[in-house]
């Protein structure tokens, strides 16, 4: 995390002439404008180009509403599950010393390195009609691939590392003294966790939750492979955008895309707020120490 204000003013000999500063700023802003700001504006422009009526019709279409519901459902599974995983993994890794710890940390990062398409593929190989468990699942009439459980699984897979990655370094930095003190004074393990650990990690946890939510809502590749694109049943909002776009219903596609963009902007705002909050918290103890 960063975002701390630059409080060491660089003296004049250690900076560049105004003309170089100006051109570097111009260069950076031109690059960001072309690749970030123009696309951001274009989503909303294209969504509203055909008028508000077309826009509201697109986002209140029954298929769109089904897609929104499924996106929220898979996010509602992925975030709490990965939160539980993140807390458990961070507790084991940060509070104890054991062999193979660095291997475990690398394994947690694996889903980041795997292409989302491959994440979908491995579940098809496992649960699909021709997969390892396929015959058994068909026999018991359980559908995972081309059904909602597959979409939830794929979403959980791609978001596994987000919360764990935030919590592990945070809890490692905080050490175990506070928890040890609580336990020595007679608190139970659970009480120690709720009263000591959780308040200490709440901002990092929230930060991870925000990142995890953003990714879970927007996942496309992995979900696309396991979905089967059945409208009203296995279509998430990003998949719905693709279908509309491929049917040349551009205004409707961008209307749904603008919803996802709004959600992304909300997540960015939350993320920035949390960063400011943690930066402030870091500064308070430092200023208290100096008389």
């Amino acid at each position: 995390m960063h975002g701390s204000p630059n409080h060491n003013p660089v003296s004049t000999i250690a900076t560049e002439p105004a003309i170089i500063r100006g051109s570097l700023i111009a260069l950076a802003l031109t690059f960001l404008t072309l690749f970030l700001f123009v696309p951001l504006v274009a989503v909303f422009y294209e969504a509203l180009r055909k008028g508000v009526a077309v826009y509201t019709a697109a986002i209140t279409d029954p298929y769109a509403l089904d897609a929104i519901r499924l996106t929220l459902l898979s996010t509602a599974f992925a975030v709490p599950l990965n939160m539980l995983f993140g807390i458990a993994a961070a507790w084991a890794i940060a509070k104890f010393e054991f062999y193979g710890k660095s291997v475990l940390i690398t394994l947690i990062d694996l889903p980041f390195a795997v292409s989302p398409v491959i994440a979908g593929l491995i579940y098809v190989l496992l649960f699909g009609a021709q997969g390892w468990l396929g015959p058994w699942l068909t026999e018991h009439d359980i559908k995972i691939i081309f059904a909602v459980p597959g979409i939830v699984l794929a979403t959980v897979f791609v978001t596994v590392p987000f919360i764990a990655r935030e919590l592990i370094p945070l809890m490692q930095a905080q050490g175990i003294e506070e928890e040890e003190a609580a336990l020595v004074l007679g608190a139970s393990g659970w009480l120690t966790f709720w009263r000591i650990t959780l308040p200490n990690i709440k901002w990092g946890l929230l930060y991870g939750v925000v990142l995890c939510t953003a990714r879970a809502m927007g996942e496309f590749g992995a979900v696309s492979v396991v979905s089967g694109h059945i409208r009203g049943l296995t279509n998430t909002l990003p998949l719905h955008v693709e279908i509309l776009y491929n049917e040349y219903q551009f205004a409707a596609a961008f209307a749904c895309a603008s919803l996802l963009t709004l959600l992304a902007l909300v997540m960015l705002a939350l993320k920035t707020l949390i960063e400011r909050q943690t930066a402030r918290q870091r500064q308070i103890p430092a200023s208290e120490e100096t008389p």
Binding site: E219, V241, Y245, F250, A264
Partner: peptide, 24 residues
């Protein structure tokens, strides 16, 4: 604001990025 928006590609669904960039 610029600093906050740099992370937009992490938060924006890739399908949205795809159709927007294609259009542009």
């Amino acid at each position: 604001l610029v600093d906050a928006l740099v992370d937009l590609p992490f938060a924006l669904p890739t399908a949205v990025a795809g159709i927007t960039l294609t259009m542009l």
